[in-house]
Nucleic acid binder design. Structure first.
Length: 213
DNA sequence: GCGACAG
DNA sequence: ATCTTGTCGC
């Protein structure tokens, strides 16, 4: 498939973005991540109870990797596997946190946005580095943040989730807004810079990969 | 043309 | 992301 076609798909999906979180107070949060083998993609979803940060359910989905990693098109590589793993979850999850950007993307279609549209559920993107845009380094205290701007638009934030640790980039996916994104990410982050559900999904996906390998 | 570029 | 052990630093 040509890159120009993928861009057309992103521009079409972009029109479906719902920039508002109309859910209730978050009771269940989930982290989604993918680990790779030479030929397979292993997606993992970890659902946790927000109030106790305890695991309530996990799911996995393995499939052949059909798309390479191309900056700006990560969703075409991971979104399907993640959507399938999410489909196996029985718990009614309030919000899903994904490893990548939401609308902090050239066409506002980062992994979290794309996957959020596929499953039609609230999603937040939490990336370790910037894909596009500009920002100022935030303060060193937990909770300090600065805005990420693309095309003169605030699309997300650079957030310090842990004192002294490298900040993460948070942006709304689908059915989500910046304010709630910040609140939710900070709410499920304690001893590590990465939100607990996402941190565990990363560990579990890799554990699963190393077993069959 | 040059440099940047989530996982 | 993946290939990989110990090691420097708070």
């Amino acid at each position: 498939m040509k890159l120009s076609e993928l861009i057309r798909i992103q521009e079409t999906l972009r029109k479906k973005i719902e920039p508002v979180y109309s859910g209730n107070n978050v009771q269940f949060v989930a982290g989604c991540d993918v680990a790779y083998t030479h030929e397979n993609s292993i997606a993992c979803v970890v659902v946790m109870k927000m109030s106790e940060m305890s695991i309530v359910e996990t799911s996995f989905h393995k499939e052949k990797t059909r798309f390479p990693y191309i900056p700006g098109f990560l969703a075409f590589r991971e979104a399907n596997a993640i959507a399938r793993a999410i489909a196996k979850i029985k718990t009614t999850v309030d919000v899903f946190i994904l490893d990548g950007h939401g609308i902090a993307h050239p066409r506002r279609m980062g992994l979290a946005t794309h996957a959020g549209i596929l499953v039609d559920r609230p999603t937040i993107g939490c990336a370790k580095s910037l894909l596009a845009g500009t920002y100022r380094m935030p303060g060193k205290e937990k909770g300090d943040f600065s805005t990420v701007i693309i095309d003169n638009e605030v699309v997300g934030i650079c957030l310090r989730t842990k004192k002294g640790a490298k900040p993460v980039f948070v942006s709304p996916g689908n059915h989500m807004d910046i304010e709630n994104s910040i609140k939710i990410v900070l709410q499920c982050t304690a001893n590590y810079k990465t939100p607990e559900p996402l941190r565990l999904a990363h560990i579990f996906a890799n554990r699963k990969k190393n077993m069959e390998a």
